[in-house]
Amino acid sequence: MFKDKIYIISIVITIVSLFFFIVSINDLLFGNGALIHLFSLKFIGAWQYWVLIVSVILFSYFAYMSYSLISDMSKFKKLLQSSSKKTFISNMPDLERISKRFGSHYDDLLTEAKHKWGIKK
């Protein structure tokens, strides 16, 4: 079940970490009053630097992960819709890797595509 929703979780964590990055940078460097009135981390004191560091790390990792997941989903759908059996078979390792990464729904789609092309593996 977790694998089926991993891309949603990744995108949410990316957005939340970006929010904390923006708030931390504003509190520490810019001090924009309009943003401080909406949300501020000044109450945690020197821990703001740690929030900044962690948010940068989380944003970097999960932004890359989100990109990778969306790219794999796009590649999987493109290869399944291919009109060439040779293309499908030559990309079978990638298709199997992606289907394992995303869970049962993608396994089912791959099984249907294998059946369509007459592949028994």
Rank of each mutant, 00 (worst) to 15 (best):
H105W: 13
A34C: 03
F2S: 10
A34H: 06
I57L: 07
S84I: 13
S66D: 04
S82C: 05
I15L: 06
I44W: 05
K114D: 12
S83V: 14
Y49G: 08
V54T: 11
I44Q: 06
V12C: 09
S55Q: 07
L69E: 03
D94Q: 07
L41C: 13
S24Y: 06
N91Q: 04
K42D: 09
A113M: 10
Y7K: 06
K100T: 14
Y61R: 01
L80I: 09
S68C: 10
S66G: 08
I11W: 05
Y61P: 02
Q48I: 05
S99A: 13
I9F: 03
L28R: 05
S17L: 02
L69H: 14
G45Y: 04
I22S: 12
V54E: 10
I36A: 04
L80F: 08
I53M: 13
T14F: 01
K121Y: 11
F39R: 05
I6Y: 01
K3T: 09
W50C: 14
I44V: 07
H105D: 08
L18N: 01
K114H: 15
G31N: 13
N32L: 15
M65R: 13
Q81W: 01
W50T: 15
F21K: 08
S84H: 11
F2M: 10
I89A: 09
Y67I: 04
I53S: 13
S74Q: 15
K3S: 13
D27C: 11
R97P: 04
I9M: 01
D4K: 10
I89Q: 09
I22L: 15
G103V: 15
I15R: 01
K116S: 08
I119E: 03
I22R: 11
I13H: 01
E96L: 11
W47P: 06
S17G: 01
L29E: 00
N32A: 12
L28W: 08
T14Q: 06
Q81F: 01
D4Y: 00
Q48W: 06
S99D: 03
L69G: 07
L69A: 07
F76Q: 11
I25K: 04
L38F: 09
F76Y: 15
F102L: 03
M1Y: 02
K121H: 12
L109S: 00
Y106F: 12
H37P: 03
K121T: 11
E112K: 14
N91S: 10
I98H: 05
K75D: 13
I9N: 00
K116Y: 14
Y106G: 03
G45F: 05
F43M: 06
V56H: 03
V51H: 02
S17F: 02
R101W: 00
